[in-house]
Design a binder for these strands. Sequence first.
DNA 1: TTATTATTGTACCAATTTGTTACAATAATA
DNA 2: TATTATTGTAACAAATTGGTACAATAATAA
Lengths: 241, 241
Amino acid sequence: MRDQLHPEEIEPDGDDFLPGLAIDAVIFGFHQNQLKILLLEYRNTGLMALPGGFILTNENLNDAARRVLSERTGLSDIYLEQFYVFGDLNRFDPAPMRAIMAAKGFMPPNNHWLLRRFVSVGYYALVDFTKAVPIPDSLSDSCAWYDLANLPLLMQDHQFIVQKALDTLRTDLDRKLIGFNLLAETFTMADLQSLYETILDQKLHRSGFQRKMLSLGILERLDKHYSGGAHKAPFLYRFIK
Amino acid sequence: MRDQLHPEEIEPDGDDFLPGLAIDAVIFGFHQNQLKILLLEYRNTGLMALPGGFILTNENLNDAARRVLSERTGLSDIYLEQFYVFGDLNRFDPAPMRAIMAAKGFMPPNNHWLLRRFVSVGYYALVDFTKAVPIPDSLSDSCAWYDLANLPLLMQDHQFIVQKALDTLRTDLDRKLIGFNLLAETFTMADLQSLYETILDQKLHRSGFQRKMLSLGILERLDKHYSGGAHKAPFLYRFIK
DNA sequence: TTATTATTGTACCAATTTGTTACAATAATA
DNA sequence: TATTATTGTAACAAATTGGTACAATAATAA
C-alpha cells in the first residue's frame, strides 16, 4: 500500500504508477509450529505495516504483486493469490504516511499523491520460511517475521486486512491444496498435520489426517528420516503436482 | 467498467471519479431453468458489454458496486460479492470505447481519461429475476437478460470475466448459502434443485438433495402449492436466516 | 546388550454421511 | 373413477469419516 517507496518515488507526481491504487501483501510463513507474517517497521515512527507497493503504468497488476513479494523475500515463484479489494473511504488517513515521510526528512504538500485516497488490492502469499530472506524497503528499518498469534499494533486497517487474509487461507486450505507452499521441500506427516492444525486452529485426528492426505494422491513418499528424535523414524514426503 | 457514463461523465477530466479504476458487474438471474446475466448493447456499435461503472471520489468501492447494481436493476439489497481484480495491461484497448463515444457523437482526444488503462474490480450479483427491471444506461440502447449458455460476443475481456464469475459462483454455492438469492420469495424443492443443477451443470439425486437442504436448517416449510401441474402438489419453502 | 520410551504406520471397527431404490400419497386430467 | 406424473419419505447399501488399538521402530537409559 502507501508504504513502500523507493527514494525516487517521493516525487511530486508519482507518474510512474497507477494513481490511487496500491497492493498490500500478507506474506505467510510457518516456523516452529507458528504461523508468521512479514511486517515492516518504519524509521523513527514506530509504525508497523504490511509490505506493499504500487503498480507501474506498464505493469500487470499481478506482476506488481509478484514484484513486491520478490523485493521483500528474495524469492520468485511464490504462491500468491488475490483475496479482497479494500476500498472504503475511512481507510484514507494521511497522518501515518505524513509521519513516515517526515521521518525521512520530506515535508510533502497537502495534496501530495501519497496522501490521497488509495484503493488497495489485498494479496496473500505462502512462502517457505527457511528460504525467504526478509528485506526492508527504503523507508523501513526492518522487515521481519511476527507471530500471527501475537501481532504488534498495525498501521491503518492492516489488522483487518490480515484477518481477512487468514479467513481466506483457512477456506482455501482444503479446496485448493496450498498448504505445502508453507513447508520445506520435504516434510513428515507430523509436520503437515501441525501446519493444518495451526492454520485451522483445531486439533485433527492423526489417523484420519494421514488417510485423507495420502488419498489425495499429491504426496510422494521418500526414504525414512532419522533425525534426533528418540522414536521411530517417520517417512519424508514431497509434494507432487 | 468503462462503459456506463452519464452525459455529464463525458468530460475532459473525469474528476468526479477515481482515476483508472472501474467496476464490472456480472449480474446473475435464473428463469425457466436457465442461468442468465444482464448485458448492455451500445447504440450503433453492436458492442455488448457487462454493466459497470466508476467509483466516485467520495464513495466506498462496495457502495459504488451497489449503486451500479441498483441503477441497472432497480433493486437495492442485492447479494453482491467481489470475485477478482482484472489488472492486466492487455485488456487496455481504447478502440471499443472510442467507437461507443463516437456513436454518441463525441470525438475524444487520444489522451481522454476514458481511453486510458483501467483496472477493473469484478463483482458478481444474484438477483430475483422476477423483481429486477433491466434499465439501460445513457449510452446503451438495451439492457437485457441473456442465456449464460448462449452468450453473444462480448467486448474486451468480458467473456473471461463472466467465466471467472461463474467459477466463483460454483465454488461459493455450497460454502456460503447463496442460491436462494436467485429465487423468488417462495419456491419448491424442485425449483431449488433445478437451480443447483443448472449452476453446477450436473444432475443431482432428488432424495439426497432434499435431505441435504432440509438438514441445513435454513428452509421454512410453508403450505402446499397447487398450481397447474397434474401431479401431487409440492410444499413451498422460504429461506430463513 | 537389553529394557524403556515415545512416536509412527496401519489395521480395524463404529458412527455418520451420502448414494440409490422403492413405494405410498396425491392432484390434476382423461 | 382410473390414469399419470410427481412428491414426500422410508429403507437400505456404499462410502466416508471418527476413533481405538497395536505392532514396529529408533533413540536413550539401564
